[in-house]
Design a protein around this nucleic acid. Structure first.
Length: 500
RNA sequence: GGUCCUGUGGCCGAGUGGCUAGGCAGAGCUCUGCAAAAGCUUCCACACCAGUUCGAAUCUGGUCGGGACCUCCA
């Protein structure tokens, strides 16, 4: 069964065939570290983490490149713009690298919370100024860019004319016709420097107050936003690579510009499979800074935001995202998050129960059930290979949960299904839940001490129950529940516990 | 205005023309000293109108609603 990926470029699901057998190259647009990441940012990084994990699971040696955009016109909120040109002491001034470092650290922290595997290479834009300048020089030399007033602009019209003949018109990724675009672009800074409104900056001349600046053949300035991805992707993945991912909002113009720049420089289309995740919405509207409706990740994890009824664990968010398809919008809501929180807990506990079932050697007494489970498990692969339909895989898992719990609680005879099926369940649940979906269930604190303390309380409660001292036994149970520890009386008299 | 996407039960969300997606919430039952957990059963749906078809949530057309991109944006 081949892996199928929806390719934004062709608008079709296509079988994934790597350029180099056994290897896969993937580039994902990373964060702009001028501010803190919000819930919306969580989606691409979790989505493509699953893609990365699955490619690895398939045995590919994957190089996963995700950039850090740390070049640009950055300002920290609250800090006055005149800082930049003032004569203040150096430590009082806004140092761009300080700001960039701060938000990079926060981003990395959030990625860890989500249990995202770190990319193979995480290049920074500021670390690749030379490569970007070199690339711009090549574009100018080929006649697809022009210099004006210390800035360099990409000549979109010329590109479109020449590359349309090669079947690669400008706009092919986002489905736009350049001619229809011309008069709809709005007013921007320095529009007059451009020959045409559709042209975009490769290099910008830096005004005196601009603090991030580098020397270039065209004077002091800073790179345009689009060129960094082209330069770094080419450097680390080659002139053509397998997968490029990012949010749908980057499809135009960012990825369109990437294609244009790279195609001119490298004489080949840069990317085989373009993947775009959809947006996370809030009240039906895209979460974004300009809409003033963002919930930062730190707020989400602490519950410190007017829209939040409670704190949400990073794994709840991860599970929430996995419950939908990455190309659909996903609407945020407390009710929805709380549903995910409970669902994930139930799934994880069933998974743990499954791992505890002793394997033996017996045949199934309920062959219909046994066959059904085997089918559902084989569909894990069918679904993930169908453009990463994580939601369907989870749905199948939940169909199996009652069987696991039923066996565990003796509501269902263990030999209803064969021992081989149980072994298969253990194997496949582990692969999908932990390896591919990257889910974990970490209880904070020193789990060993907690274990011992709880065991003590459980023993006391057992004794109280044996003496019909229900006041004591109920007090222990109810107070623990209040503290977030739930005791569960098992059928055989044992008591287990879980933390909410 | 242009291009495109979308409208599924109380909430979130899968849905490739015919077979109960799934989760959370609600109801009933089993188990339990009482609970919880777990299991079993169950209610609630396909925006609207017309068409194609033996059969449509799924295809076509229209109506109405929501959204994205065209500007930085995951």
């Amino acid at each position: 069964m081949p892996l199928k990926i929806y390719n934004s470029l062709t608008r079709k699901k296509e079988e994934f065939k790597p350029i180099t057998p056994g290897y896969a190259g993937m580039y994902v647009c990373g964060p702009t570290v001028s501010g803190e990441s919000h819930l919306g940012h969580a989606r691409p990084y979790i989505t493509f983490d699953v893609v990365y994990r699955y490619l690895q699971h398939l045995g590919y040696k994957v190089r996963y490149v995700r950039n850090i955009t740390d070049a640009g016109h950055f300002e920290e909120e609250g800090r006055a713009a005149e800082d930049k040109i003032s004569t203040k002491a150096i430590l009082e001034k806004l140092e761009p690298m300080e700001l960039v470092q701060k938000y990079t650290n926060m981003f990395h922290w959030a990625m860890q919370q989500f249990n995202n595997i770190e990319p193979s290479i995480e290049p920074t834009a500021t670390g690749h100024i030379v490569e970007q300048i070199t690339m711009i020089e090549k574009i100018i030399a080929d006649g697809y860019a022009y210099v004006n007033n210390g800035s360099v602009y990409f000549d979109v019209n010329k590109y479109n004319e020449d590359f349309s003949k090669k079947g690669m018109p400008y706009g092919m990724l986002s489905g736009r016709n350049l001619d229809e675009q011309l008069d709809t672009t709005r007013e921007l800074d320095n529009q007059d420097e451009k020959r045409n409104k559709a042209d975009f900056a490769l290099w910008k001349n830096a005004p005196p107050e601009h603090i991030m600046r580098w020397k270039s053949p065209w004077g002091e300035g800073f790179p345009g936003w689009h060129i960094e991805c082209s330069a770094m992707a080419t450097k680390y993945l080659g002139t053509q690579f397998d997968i490029h991912g990012g949010g749908m909002d980057l499809q135009f113009p960012h990825h369109e510009c990437e294609i244009a720049q790279s195609s001119v420089c490298n004489h080949t289309a840069p990317v085989r499979y373009w993947m775009h995740n959809n947006m996370i919405t809030i009240n039906g509207r895209k979460m974004g800074k300009s809409y003033n409706n963002v919930i930062k990740l730190s707020e989400l994890f602490t519950g410190n935001h007017p829209l939040l009824e409670q704190a949400y664990h990073p794994m709840t968010i991860r599970f929430f995202i996995l419950q939908s398809h990455y190309r659909s919008t996903l609407d945020f809501g407390n009710e929805a998050l709380q549903a995910s929180e409970k669902a994930f807990k139930r799934l994880w506990e069933a998974y743990e129960n499954l791992l505890k079932i002793e394997a033996g050697n017996w045949q199934a007494t309920d062959t219909a059930l046994d066959e059904k489970i085997n089918k559902q498990i084989s569909e894990f692969t069918t679904f993930i290979e169908d453009d990463f339909s994580t939601a369907k895989v989870l749905a199948n898992m939940f169909e199996i949960v009652p069987v696991i719990n039923g066996i565990k609680n003796k509501q269902l005879p263990i030999n209803s299904i064969s021992s081989a099926t149980i072994a298969l369940m253990k194997q496949q649940f582990k692969i999908f839940i932990e390896d591919i979906f990257g889910l974990t269930y970490n209880i904070t604190g020193d789990i060993n001490i907690l274990n011992d303390v709880l065991q003590l309380l459980i023993d006391i409660r057992k004794e109280a129950k044996a003496n019909k001292n229900f006041v004591t036994s109920d007090t222990i149970r109810n107070e623990l529940l209040r503290l977030g520890v739930q005791l569960k009386d098992e059928k055989d008299g044992n008591i287990s516990w879980s933390i909410d």
